[in-house]
Design a protein around this nucleic acid. Structure first.
Length: 551
RNA sequence: GCGCCCGUAGCUCAGCCGGAUAGAGCAUCGGACUUCGAAUCCGAGGGCCGGGGGUUCGAAUCCCUCCGGGCGCGCCA
């Protein structure tokens, strides 16, 4: 807000310099205005002179001086301009400008920080997309929370978001599920059973089998594998959806791979590729000439058995997303799917779609640290930890916060020992406590009959403690932080912002009193606190975290 | 062997399009509750940003190379 005002001024000065022949227009859009890292370097700093000098082979400090001269000492925003280091131009702003963020924050409330850069653009976030073969593991949990947070952020900046869960309830995987369930069912009845070699060994299969026995005793002993598959799938999907609801993750649409076959979309892809001479037959299989699209080898899309490989429906599915009118498609995958991504993108491109509109987020794995040691997990042996277990252990906010603390392409170590702690060292409570504390101050004021004045009527110019200025600057950065986190699909930045804001507030709180005998100062600080509470609350909620009034 | 990701404080990690003196949390040590909530605060120590080259006014950030770790490299999904 304040930054953009100053940026406009700098841009205007740059344009003026171009008109007056001080420099060429070449540097337009290439310099930046940013908050310097160190104190004494001003509130904002621009590298304009360095960029211009680099392009024109001139002395940076000369250019910096020309720029600095364009700001008058009576400027209402800038109190002082300095040239520093190799040629940075540092701007020092008048103290009172910072508190000008308070009225808009208070006026906008929940809506503060919402932008409309998306302008209603249709974007799909496809995530989780786990086939119903078992409960969600902690790896799926990361996928779910990440996708959900990204969807929330994109909505916050004006995109029209559809959350979709893509799944496949046919195929080999599901057949094995049916066989596993059938075997457990017969086993529990004391009948002859042969558990498949690569069957699902999890305890949940027994649970499903037990419920079938409760329902009909041995009445299903002659039922076929498809029956068991259907029943297992229904039970598991039910479980998955319950888990997702418990962690506050919702979907707009579920897309069954089967639909692609019903509508003939898979055959269509093959036909279209064939027409472009991008497929050929070899060894009884049908191959896609993916080498023509930068791949190291051609790929089979239809096996010699006549069954398609996974990448064919994947390509058809993504093409269908284009047809459904999505202009931006975000896929959240675990890093084990890395090999499929180039295939699908190549296929999309081969069909004439712009694969730049598909953005794949590959998140790394999650490891669990318990009692200071890594917990070994194996999907095959079903010794994995489920989202349900983790949720029961630490609760929804801790779960979400920890999942979002790391950027997606870092491996995530989930420190259970830290997550379980209900105090001090747990960063979730640190942030939530700041919010609760602000609520508490409001309550305290109310109980003492102190009214918070409207922000426009408060003496905001009294907010000139250094801690107040830093906090106000941070508040002012909130909208651009949200915007950046959204378009870069990086929710972890919001977490870091919140920890920083909470920390600044806690320090301030311990040093200064809000409610004092000075009525004007109290009024100003109560408005200040309302703004802080608003931003903290909005930041928590945009990630799907709760902002408690008491703890 | 090839592809992608990671390597920053004892541990877990930030650091956006290259910027001026390297950041946070946890852990460790030492302090602060008759005061709006101590789930808090203040202070201290701790770093050849994996190694080596290169690009340039300037590199944790970009390029090359090597080392170490993760994930992939199927007519499995």
């Amino acid at each position: 807000m304040i930054k953009s005002q100053l940026k406009e001024r700098v841009d205007a000065c740059f344009a003026r310099g171009v008109r007056e022949g001080l420099w060429s227009a070449e540097a337009a859009g290439r310099y930046v205005l940013e908050v310097p890292r160190h104190e004494g370097q001003g509130d904002f700093s621009t590298n304009l002179a360095l960029v211009v000098a680099g392009l024109e082979k001139r002395k940076p400090r000369d250019i910096a001086a020309q720029l600095a001269a364009m700001f008058s000492p009576e400027d209402e925003l800038v109190v002082r301009v300095e040239i520093a280091g190799p040629g940075f131009v540092n701007f020092f702003l008048r103290d009172r400008v910072w508190s000008s963020v308070i009225p808009p924050v208070c006026a906008q409330g929940d809506r503060f920080g919402l932008e409309n850069v998306g302008a209603g653009m249709k974007v799909m976030v496809e995530f989780v997309s786990a086939n119903p073969t078992g409960p969600l593991s902690i790896g799926h949990g990361r996928n779910a929370i990440l996708g959900d947070a990204i969807a929330r952020l994109l909505e916050a900046v004006g995109y029209d978001v559809t959350r979709e869960y893509y799944f496949n309830d046919a195929g080999r995987q599901m057949r094995v599920l049916g066989e596993s369930t059938r075997a457990r069912y017969l086993e529990l009845l004391g009948l002859e059973s042969n558990f498949p070699e690569d069957g699902y060994q999890g305890e949940y299969i027994y649970d499903i089998a037990r419920s079938l026995i409760e329902e009909a005793g041995d009445g299903f002993r002659d039922a076929d594998v498809v029956f068991f598959k259907d029943r297992a799938q229904a039970a598991i999907f039910d479980n998955i959806n319950t888990t997702l609801r418990n962690i506050d993750v919702r979907f707009d649409t579920y897309f069954n791979e089967h639909t692609l076959y019903e509508k003939g979309l898979v055959d269509q892809v093959v036909a279209d590729l064939r027409e472009k001479d991008l497929v050929y037959e070899k060894d009884g299989a049908t191959w896609f000439r993916s080498t023509q699209f930068g791949q190291d080898q051609d790929r089979v899309i239809i096996k010699s058995s006549g069954e398609p490989t996974y990448r064919l429906p994947d390509i058809a599915y993504h093409r269908e997303k284009f047809r459904r009118g999505f202009e931006w498609m975000i896929d959240i995958f675990g890093s084990d799917h890395i090999a499929t991504v180039p295939d699908v993108l190549a296929g999309i491109r081969a069909l004439g779609c712009d694969d730049a509109k598909v953005k794949v987020i590959l998140h790394q794995f999650v490891t669990l640290l318990k009692d200071g040691r890594q917990v070994k997990m194996s999907t095959r042996k079903a010794t994995f930890i489920t989202v349900d277990e983790l949720l029961e252990d630490v609760g929804p906010d801790v779960l979400r916060f920890f999942y979002l603390m790391r950027k997606s392409d870092s491996q995530l170590e989930f420190d259970l020992d830290l997550a379980r702690k209900q105090s001090q060292e747990n960063p979730v409570y640190y942030v939530q406590y700041a919010h609760a504390r602000l609520c508490s101050i409001e309550r305290q004021a109310r109980e003492n009959g102190v009214v918070t004045p409207p922000a426009e009527a408060a003496s905001l110019e009294l907010l000139k403690e250094p801690e107040e200025c830093v906090l106000l600057k941070t508040v002012a950065e909130y909208p651009s932080m949200i915007f950046g986190a959204a378009v870069d699909l990086a929710p972890h930045r919001v977490i870091f912002y919140l920890m920083n804001l909470a920390g600044l507030f806690h320090s301030y709180y311990n040093k200064h009193k809000v409610i004092t005998d000075d009525a004007r100062l109290t009024g100003a600080r109560l408005c200040f606190c309302r703004a802080l509470k608003t931003v903290l609350g909005n930041g928590l909620r945009v990630l799907g975290l709760r902002a408690p009034e008491t703890m």
